[in-house]
Write a protein that binds this DNA or RNA. Sequence first.
RNA 1: GCCUGGGUGGCGAAAUUGGUAGACGCGCCAGACUCAAACUCUGGUUCCCGCGAGGGAGUGUCGGUUCGAUCCCGACCCCAGGUACCA
Length: 836
Amino acid sequence: MTASPDFSLYDPRAIEAAVQSQWQSERAFEVTEPGAREDAYYCLTMFPYPSGQLHMGHVRAYTLGDVIGRYQRLKGKQVLQPMGWDAFGLPAENAAIKHGIPPAEWTRANIANMRGQMNALGFAFDWSREFATCDPDYYRWEQWFFIQLYKKGLVYRKSSMVNWDPVDQTVLANEQVIDGKGWRSGAPVERRELPQWNLKITEYAQELLSELDELEGWPESVKSMQRNWIGRSEGVEIDFAVAEHDALAIPAEQRTLTVYTTRPDTLLGATYVAVACEHPLATLAAEGDEALAQFIAECKQVKAAEADLATMDKLGRATGIEAIHPLTGQRLPIWVANFVLMEYGSGAVMSVPGHDQRDWEFARKYALPIVQVIEPAPDAVGDDAHCDLEQAAYTAHGQLINSGDYDGLDFGGAFDAIADALAGKQAGRRTVNYRLRDWGVSRQRYWGCPIPMLFCDACGVVPVAEADLPVELPTEVTFEGVSSPLKAMPEWLQTTCPECGGPATRETDTFDTFMESSWYYARFASPNANSPMVDERATFWTPVDTYVGGIEHAILHLLYARFYHKLMRDAGLLSSDEPFERLLMLGMVLKDGKKMSKSAGDAGNPQKLLEKYGADAVRTAMMFAAPPEQSFEWSEGGVDGQSRFLKRLHQVAQDHLADGLPGPLDTSALSPAATELRRVAHDALARADDDFGRRRQFNTVVSRAHELINAVRGTTVADDNDRAAVHEALRIAVVILSPIAPHLTQVLWEQLGEAGLLAYARWPDHDPAALVLEETTLVVQVNGKVRARITVPSDVDQDAAQAAALADDNVQRFMDGKALRKAIYVPGKLVNLVVG
RNA sequence: GCCUGGGUGGCGAAAUUGGUAGACGCGCCAGACUCAAACUCUGGUUCCCGCGAGGGAGUGUCGGUUCGAUCCCGACCCCAGGUACCA
């Protein structure tokens, strides 16, 4: 820093402004592709929704990403660390309604504010690649890609459930339904079906599942969540014929009821069949049954969220229609049950109350028969060995009884025999089933990417012509009511059909915002690509080396991005199979026990802290607070402590430098105190390297730096050579802290006599010789309890260690003259004497 | 409900995942400096008993494995995240 101001006092505001302007004028963090991929490092932290202000959850995530990026740069990598804005979404519409500001204007203002806060925090972003997903230049490619997928047959339209507010006449997000009522109208919501666009993610279910095994850089917990979400199971689809009914004419397409089960071995125990309240048979039965119609209407007054559906009281009602058991010909009543979901499988399930707990409870409640067809296997142990259908269903695999020819078979044998029997009667087939459902991408909202589809009276559904892309979202809008302003804009709504030239109407739904966040990492690599959506730079940079983000995205966002990556690969746009090599899933920053983005308010805003303490102190406090994967409750107290630490670091350096720069270090001529300081310094260096690179635990790096500075402060120097050891220790402290507190360390770096940007310095190697200790402390236990600590030479053998342990008075006291039965020696740690 | 995590001093945490529980920091207490306070510096700080040496208990609860368990196993309690339209 030429003509540097006086930094002999720790003034974070002056230091941080000067260092930030230096980074800016040198364009320090703009990056281009190096010759070899191994010299490159793509470090990405999930881009934010521009809500207006950063909260401490953002500060944590972006600091962690920045620490990783800066560490990799010290390790010699060309680091790509981009930033942008996930700019479409619900809050902008809410703000528009509340404050009368158009969503685009509100969003742009928020972006400007948050970009300023990010810069004040000193993140090493390559801003030349910035974009917002609401830029037509970005979303046009999403529209283009959707049309490619449509042409490939990966897109289809189908009815699915939404929350309908009957007063506001609008669709509500799950979040907008509070206790079953619309958040604005207060009216009870209803589930309603609307036609929606869907992406066939289920065609990729097996690949999405299988490739989890290859993702070695992903946490097991996330892979496990995704596996369970995809939910592969092997079972049998069984066709139940629907019996003729005296009063109701069953239409041909409803004469077969297909159910899926993973337990065909229990088929002979099926005593009724349950269908969803939206099922056509339920609708049919309700025509002549006022009470059933009333029941179905009540069932629909539940929010369309799995958690609500799964925890509600299980209710049902008979339809009067019967199904015919495919093997026995027995007639089974068909019930409507509120827990059967139309969206899963066929909207019907066979019920085996003897061997399924939910069916058992339902059968008990409505006095339906419970038949036992499985008994514990002879070798069953524990709970599996007991069956008492008066108390609960028996759900373990066992041996068949009351099943005619199948009696005595075990689960596997019965599965095969019954599946074969059904197949022989054309009444069933083995299938692999996934819990994963196709991705519904339609949203009945204004502030999103317009879905590029048209409705033509003559041609039906027609995609927008590629030459007409992007379908721009009008931004000069006013929110009169709660419905989308697009519907009130005939000049936008009416267009011409690209196929017949006749009049056509635009789709007014917009895309789910997960569509934008599913490919932005590839766009960052080639931000100005203009045909097609990404170019060969995206192939160079992907997969992302480390992707940092909140654990709340462990399933949906990460699964959709993995899916999209494969779609882009199959379109020839990328060459890798997976988007993210290594995943760092951050725990939640909580405020009052809840995640920041939900409940923080002003308490979560870092602005005041930044003004009072500066970015380095806020960053250091955030890193020090907890390891990355752990959730924790944020409190501001810690910032004060880290600010004091940085001040001490600065002061120690000034005190040291007051006597000028020392000469070269001679490690063989140090005082004992300086030798010990070198041990602490090189230990801190080695551990910081491991913590940054392998362990990704940064709170302990800060602790180590504290210890190192405490050691420097406690070291009395004997001569100029000792001062050289202090100099080395300070240089090490500055390097290991630089990813965390990059501003102050840059200034100290120059004061210590180094030139140029510390960001581009090389991580020093530690000196293994400095770590060797001559003596070590061993713990002596008697029968596992600590009774003494002894100091021994580091290379002591078991006999000598044991002898030293036995020589201790307190040890003798607790041995109490008893015989030594066994001695365990852990070198460098302990001796455990087992007596008795 | 289901899936995935988590629970350690007054507080945030550490213990490199079978070997000294509580490093480091916050807070608090005492002392130095000051007319005084703040800042800063020094010392103390898991709980209980003891003047002390030292002893006992202790990592959500209960049980197990082991010479030895915060760590492994079983059962349970509580909290958080996700649950397909918050992002």
